[in-house]
């Protein structure tokens, strides 16, 4: 039975290897189940609940709560704040990521770290920072009073806090894209006579457009949803300095659940829309990336 021994070993090895794959399959499904369950319980269920609560007293009530003058004012203020802070951060993001990827300078890594600061600092602290600067007892407080300027507990303060909180989004998206594109296309434009602005407009901007749009969407979502920093500087003046998240809190504290959820559902809808747009953009950008990669690989057929 010369062949018997190896056969037995082979079978053992086979069983072992099978057990190995079984284990990993089991493990795989375990991890997938945990992740899905977690998402369902902690994310999907509350999201559905938001909409369910909003519609508890029917569509009409939901609509009426949204167009209630105070809620309507909050919606308008939120749009205004996002409308100012997003364009500002687009400009800042483009400038910062251009500087970081196209030039070599001292303090570059410091700049990169500083851009991340709003991510690492608590929003409440960010809000307090502006109160310390521009509040009545703040550094510029007296000067502001003298000139009859109001920043804290007014719209400018809310805009400032929002700009601060959202400024990493565009730059963070653009830096890796610009790094990957390199500077050769821009140099080519220069050799063809283009000036800096033409190079930026015709060459740089089109090549980073997906990253830019992606950054804008994330920036916008955060600008509309920011609570902590805005809460500190806003002063919660109903109908004047309440943004949507602040309005939700106020309605909820006034035991007006369905109205609170009606406004909250608008924010939630924004979140869902952001995710959908984000997914579409990622898919599109990936497709372009693949094409771009093919451009860099030489082909044999002339």
């Amino acid at each position: 039975m010369a062949g018997g021994v190896p056969t037995r070993i082979d079978r053992q090895a086979l069983r072992k290897s099978q057990r190995g794959t079984e284990e990993s399959t089991f493990f795989k499904w375990l991890l997938i189940t945990i992740s899905l369950l977690f998402c369902a319980v902690f994310l999907l269920l509350p999201l559905i609940n938001v909409f369910a609560q909003a519609l508890l007293k029917g569509w009409q009530y939901c609509w009426d709560s949204l167009v209630h003058p105070d809620s309507w004012a909050a919606i308008k203020l939120t749009l205004l704040v996002a409308g100012i802070s997003v364009p500002l951060n687009v400009v800042f993001g483009l400038v910062a990521s251009w500087a970081i990827t196209k030039f070599e300078f001292r303090g570059k890594s410091l700049l990169v770290t500083l851009i991340d600061l709003p991510f690492s600092v608590s929003p409440v602290v960010a809000g307090l920072l502006f109160v310390i600067l521009f509040g009545l007892q703040g550094f510029f407080g007296e000067w502001l009073v003298e000139h009859d300027l109001k920043i804290i507990f007014a719209v400018p303060g809310i805009v400032l806090a929002t700009v601060f909180i959202t400024f990493p989004f565009v730059a963070r998206e653009l830096i890796p894209v610009m790094q990957a594109t390199g500077t050769e296309q821009e140099q080519a434009a220069l050799t063809l006579g283009a000036n800096g602005w033409q190079t930026f407009w015709y060459v740089t901007l089109p090549s980073v457009k997906w990253g830019l749009i992606y950054g804008v969407i994330l920036c916008n979502a955060r600008a509309m949803g920011e609570f902590g920093a805005v809460s500190v500087v806003s002063g919660h003046i109903t109908g004047q300095t309440d943004t949507m998240p602040l309005r939700v809190e106020k309605l909820y504290n006034e035991y007006n659940g369905p109205a609170a959820f009606a406004v909250a559902s608008l924010l939630a809808l924004l979140a869902v829309l952001t995710l959908v747009l984000k997914t579409i953009l990622e898919w599109k950008a990936q497709r372009e990336d693949k094409r771009a990669q093919r451009v860099n690989e030489p082909k044999s057929a002339a």
Binding site: Q185, Q187, A188, A189, T191, L192, G193, A194, Q198, N296
Partner: peptide
């Protein structure tokens, strides 16, 4: 821009968001 030279880069550096016509026409448009 002022030197009036034509430069061909090692990896060509074609404008990937422009078609062949626009690539060649770029310098003329500028």
């Amino acid at each position: 821009q002022q030197r009036n030279i034509g430069f061909v880069f090692q990896h060509y550096a074609l404008f990937k968001n422009m078609n062949v016509f626009k690539n060649i026409a770029f310098g003329l448009k500028i």
